[in-house]
Simulated scan of single mutants.
Amino acid sequence: MQTLSPEKIHESLRLIQAHDPRLGSERDSLQRLWDAGRLRRRFESLDRFYQNHKSEFYQLQENQPATLGLIELAKLLVIQKVVVDRIAETFDQLKEIESEIWIQGERGNLDRERIACDWAMSHARIWREWRLKEYLFVVERMEPQLRRSLALDSGPNQPQS
């Protein structure tokens, strides 16, 4: 196993903390979404994501300190990859853009292309940050599924140290 510098360890922890939902209103909003079952699709997307990215997870596991647990490593992989479910995320962004086009149309603005570009410039980054927070929140609630998806309970599928 590779020895990591204290700077590398600190950077990994900082990266996780920087993207985690903050205490208070963000976390409360996410909890309400979770309780209402509105994050179910994120759960399913993450389950597929981890099944499809086992080798990257194992590589990340080998290159991170042993102090990082399963949840922290899982979060770090999501942060590094940025996109978990390209099709679902694209579809969800298109729904948001279509909603904005409808709102603007009601106000008399019928320039669909301009509205879509304006939405992308004004809201795409914020939309992505929120989606990432949703994913990280859901990761905290899926440890048993992570173990199964990454074959961590079965022993032979784990990488050798």
Rank of each mutant, 00 (worst) to 15 (best):
M142T: 03
E143H: 06
V84T: 01
L13I: 08
S122F: 12
S149L: 02
E56G: 14
P159I: 10
E89G: 03
M142L: 08
W102H: 12
W102R: 13
Q93Y: 07
V139F: 05
D111K: 08
A120E: 15
G69L: 05
G155W: 08
Y58T: 03
L30G: 01
E143R: 07
I16G: 00
G155E: 06
I126L: 14
V139G: 02
M142A: 04
S99I: 03
L68A: 08
M121P: 01
Q51L: 12
R114M: 12
V82H: 07
R38W: 11
E44G: 05
F49L: 02
I71E: 08
S154V: 10
I126G: 15
V82I: 14
R14S: 15
G37H: 04
I71F: 10
A36W: 10
L15Y: 08
R148K: 14
E44L: 11
D153P: 01
I87G: 10
R22Q: 15
A36L: 13
S154C: 15
M142K: 05
F43C: 03
E62Y: 13
N52A: 13
S161L: 13
E89I: 02
E96N: 10
L70F: 02
L77Y: 02
M1K: 11
R22K: 15
L70A: 05
E100H: 06
G37A: 07
L132W: 03
